[in-house]
Design a protein around this nucleic acid. Structure first.
Length: 424
RNA sequence: GGAGAGAUGGCAGAGUGGUCGAAUGCGCACGCUUGGAAAGCGUGUAAGGUGUUAAAGCCUUCGAGGGUUCGAAUCCCUCUCUCUCCGCCA
């Protein structure tokens, strides 16, 4: 949710900012809604004030035992008026809410301008891209040969875009989860947390998935407002919902492993092969809640934490700053980390790290008490994958494959995995 | 799944129709006290909206939604959640 004060004060500025991401803010609609809200609301409040006054009077009369029937009649009239008017007000408020809740976040000034993916700005690369002295296979060929990736069974058990991992590859994924969480808790000072994988509409609204993006989610039948979580961002960030945190508890940093369920509506034909894009995948997620003044630094830090995993795994990657047209609904600024995929001869997203500033916090009333002003202020929230598991498995397979089809395990992971290779 | 109890401010916990946004305690802030600290004493301290240079004032909020009433934290209905007991169960 946008800062309403800002929208009231500077509608043009807000609209211009939103324009950068290709969102047209209809200022006429806004002006009309806001004007009628204002007059209706202040009218209603004045009547309410009058009614409160009269009611108080009645109370005094009754206590004294004097006649109050005249006052009661007056109050009754006011009540009737209020009731009819507050219906109008409620409907305006509803429209306003619908209007506001589908406006995306404002974009940070240093976000590169652009239309789509093509205009994203590469900030840095890391690691050396391996030169193969044989023709490398893609992860699905490798996995099938090793008997470790079984798309057929996934399709049989559930359907398209579901995978079964067997033996060493299942173990590889499990070891990666521990590897990542250990680094984030022991070295980067995140608290580990375990959360529900089913979330309700309030939580999804809080982080911004609802009301606009319901089609990306799996909704449970029977239970009115239950959805499978599409990212740990939803349950973990909502830990802060309706809370007022003490300043000494900030920043708050959580790391959480969850499965993620995405309907992948609108991505038909994309990445149909293997485990690149699934309806169900595992992810280790980093979430931070900080004071807004610290949030820019926190984004750099958090991105660095995710990068550290790739460095330790000796996977080549690059960091790109998403351009204004490609940035997500709730985010003010996003860095994507993309890992090198030899079979595609390009970098592919393996982590997305975003600063939401107060956008999510405003929706979920996540606040902290500022001791210097003694006021409650909104938190700033951030999150990023640290990392997406199936794509990490995929990247290790492809980047560390040997001529005979075996896969070397990156050194840093060997203690976790238990051996130094997956043999052919 | 069955039976019962409950949901109040940052936290704990009073309040069963009328100056109740709400006693008290804890916590927190400030002041006094002290060489300094603790203790003690005093003062202040919910959120959101509106308004203002700032304030005052006004409106809303006692789990959520609806209802009764001139007036609801308090009465009625629905829902959600929590706790206790029973059953079932990884």
């Amino acid at each position: 949710m946008l800062d309403l004060k800002r929208l009231k004060k500077d509608p043009k500025l807000v609209a211009d900012n939103l324009k950068k991401r290709g969102f047209k803010l209809d200022l006429d609609v806004w002006d009309k809604l806001e004007a009628s809200r204002k007059s209706l609301q202040s009218d209603t409040e004045n009547m309410q004030a009058e009614l409160n006054e009269v009611s108080k009077d009645i109370g005094i009369h009754k206590k004294e035992g004097s006649d109050s029937s005249k006052l009661e009649k007056k109050a009754s009239e006011i009540t009737t008026k209020i009731k009819s008017q507050s219906k109008d007000l409620a409907s305006i408020l509803e429209d306003l809410e619908a209007f506001l809740s589908s406006i995306p976040n404002l974009i940070d000034d240093d976000v590169p301008k652009g239309k789509d993916e093509e205009d994203n700005l590469e900030l840095r690369t890391s690691g050396d891209i391996r030169k193969f002295d044989f023709t490398p296979e893609d992860h699905l060929e490798l996995g099938s040969n090793l008997g470790g990736i079984d798309m057929e069974s996934g399709a049989k058990i559930t359907g398209a875009r579901f995978a079964v991992l067997n033996g060493d590859l299942a173990r590889l994924q499990r070891s990666l989860i521990n590897f990542m969480i250990d680094i984030h808790t022991k070295e980067h000072n995140y608290e580990e947390v375990y959360v529900p994988y089913i979330v309700n509409t309030e939580s999804l609204y809080g982080t911004g998935q609802l009301p606009k993006f319901e089609e990306d989610l799996f909704k449970l039948e029977g239970k009115e407002n239950f959805y499978l979580t599409s990212t740990a961002e939803v349950p973990v960030t909502n830990l802060f919902r309706d809370k007022i945190l003490d300043s000494k508890d900030l920043p708050r940093k959580f790391v959480c492993h969850t499965p993620c369920f995405r309907s992948e509506a609108g991505s038909y034909g994309l990445d149909t092969k293997g485990i690149m894009r699934l309806h169900q995948f595992e992810k280790v997620e980093l979430v931070q809640a900080v004071e807004d003044k610290d949030s820019d630094n926190a984004l750099e830090e958090l991105t660095g934490h995710a990068e550290e995993i790739l460095k330790r795994l000796e996977l080549p990657y690059r960091v790109v700053s998403l351009c204004s047209g490609d940035i997500g609904f709730s985010a003010a600024k996003t860095y994507d980390i993309e890992v090198w995929i030899p079979s595609q001869d390009k970098y592919r997203e393996i982590s997305s790290c975003s600063n939401f500033h107060e956008f999510q916090a405003r929706r979920m009333k996540a606040r902290w008490k500022n001791p210097s002003t003694n006021k409650t202020e909104l938190l700033s929230t951030l999150n990023g994958s640290g990392l997406a598991l199936s794509r990490t498995v995929l990247a290790i397979m492809e980047n560390f494959q040997q001529k005979d089809g075996s896969i070397t395990i990156p050194e840093a992971l060997r203690d976790y995995f238990g051996s130094k290779e997956i043999s052919a």
